[in-house]
Design a protein around this nucleic acid. Structure first.
Lengths: 224, 224
DNA sequence: CCTACCGATCGGTAGG
DNA sequence: CCTACCGATCGGTAGG
């Protein structure tokens, strides 16, 4: 359609892409890596521009300001996660197989998009209210889907109000993997998916067994 | 011993403390809250000084530079966690009771030091190599203690190399609680401790049961 | 799309 | 000389 932009081909390692949208996507990819590794605030727009082989004004041609980069990175990532969730749910699997697939798909998606996921977790606080709320709503939707599947497996958890806490324990295990798995060559993300799945089903069963004596910690405040 | 410094008593809300060490501690407390809520890089030394009722030069009298604040916050916190760990281990409880106590103590300590813990997690990357390594070593020591207790409960996990991954799944659940528990009035940190404990024991048992057929995810790549 | 800048604010330090 | 600060400003760099 269009020749490569004349001033782009300097010393860039990655493949160039023609067209406005392609360039936008290439910038987002560069920015994702820079923000994930160096922090959003700590990364300058000059660094982003340089990584893309662009001048700073050129960069601002594609993104209105610095937060527009952050919106693009986080929103695209969370939309991908929503799509993955929807694809698994569309299979209409039995509840346990469904949750197993959800965990597997998420670990895989996280592994492919480690940088984007780190930016989503660490830097979302720098978005403006409206953008942050919109992205958090998508996250909440994903969490709700997970929680509903968990409730199908163990319906008595919903009444006890435990479906969300247990869902968040699951997300905690998965999200925290990014802080330790990279430096440990023994297991890959794919190795961890079945371990997390087994672990979660075991934990789910155990919490069920003791959820009858709910809030037993009240013993601390009102003995017997 | 010494009268309150004459120019300190302006409009500070917090209690003043006489002596160099007391002032240092008061500054660390203010900086912890500011860094946790606003980020380390995003918080200026002027803001820290203002929150303490000090001029910026006065602040620099107590801390050589900005990173010295970060070292103080994170190192004191991780040392407290090490002490809590040591106190539980000194009781020489049976393994399951010991792990239960460790989880309970950590959730409690985290709840009391939410700000410090958030700074430890989010901002440790801004420390210089030497400081970061020293603090990470203390973290690794704590993780090793948890892992050793878990291995006492399920010795066969160590051979499979699963003791560290399972320990990190536990820390993931606990550390991630900070991102969701505050906005959910139904459960407190203390409520969650027994839930996490039950959940972890259940998961531990389930992973044990299936760890024989380790790496079964290879089915994905080589069917049957 | 570039060089050349801006208003502001940063972490850190001068003299007294 | 020490400490515990002050008002003012340093050299550099941020986003735009």
């Amino acid at each position: 359609m269009q020749a490569y932009p004349p001033y782009l081909g300097q010393t860039m390692a990655r493949g160039r892409s023609s067209g406005y949208e392609g360039q936008r996507e290439a910038i987002l990819q560069q920015a994702t890596a820079l923000f994930a590794e160096g922090g959003y605030t700590e990364t300058s727009m000059n660094q982003v521009a340089q990584a893309c082989g662009l001048s700073k004004p050129a960069l601002y041609h594609y993104f209105r300001d610095k937060t527009a980069l952050l919106v693009g990175i986080t929103e695209e990532h969370v939309i991908r996660l929503e799509m993955v969730t929807g694809q698994v749910m569309a299979q209409q699997l039995p509840a346990k197989a469904c949750l197993q697939q959800l965990i597997m798909s998420f670990v895989k998606e996280y592994a492919d998009a480690q940088h984007a996921h780190r930016v989503l977790i660490d830097e979302i606080r720098f978005l403006q209210e409206a953008d942050r709320v919109r992205i958090l709503d998508r996250e909440r939707h994903i969490v709700a889907v997970f929680a509903s599947v968990i409730c199908t497996i163990r319906p008595e958890l919903q009444a006890a109000g435990l479906s969300k806490p247990l869902t968040m324990l699951l997300f905690g295990m998965i999200n925290w993997m990014f802080t330790w798995l990279k430096s440990d060559g023994k297991f890959s993300y794919e190795d961890m998916a079945p371990i997390v799945t087994d672990f979660f089903f075991g934990g789910l069963a155990m919490v069920q067994a003791t959820s009858a004596q709910e809030n037993r910690n009240e013993l601390v405040y009102s003995p017997q």
